[in-house]
Amino acid sequence: MPILGEDDIVQSRQHAREAARQLGFGAVDQSRIATAVSELARNIVRYATDGRGQITIRQLTSTDGRERTGIEIVVSDEGPGIPDIDQALSDGFTSGGGMGMGLPGTRRLMDEMTIESAVGSGTTITIRKWRR
């Protein structure tokens, strides 16, 4: 789904929560996943060019032999990019007047998080959670 403005923060987190529920995640994981998506959607609205970006949610199936189901959410924008990813991932660092909890908090809520970012061309953050 596209992120075009503040209203889409609520839309995206509810969408993510519903997707997690349909994939069989329990209440706590639904909350973790929805909250992580909310943090990332807000980052787009605050920092991306014109506050625009894209969120894609899909089901994961493990390939390592064990039968596992997961959820993958890709959040991308064509904004200014993150100059120093390590710094952005440290607790308390903020460039936008927030508390600096968004990215490090999101990482703690999920099983996996990868960030690809190039200054001037955008950011793509992929988060994953596996069903237990």
């Binding site: 209440a27 706590v28 909350s31 973790r32 909250t35 909890m101 490090p104 908090g105 703690r108 809520l109």
Partner: peptide, 11 residues
């Protein structure tokens, strides 16, 4: 409860 757990993990 799920919100409480999430908030604590979020910091």
């Amino acid at each position: 409860p799920a919100v409480a757990i999430t908030l604590v993990e979020l910091g």
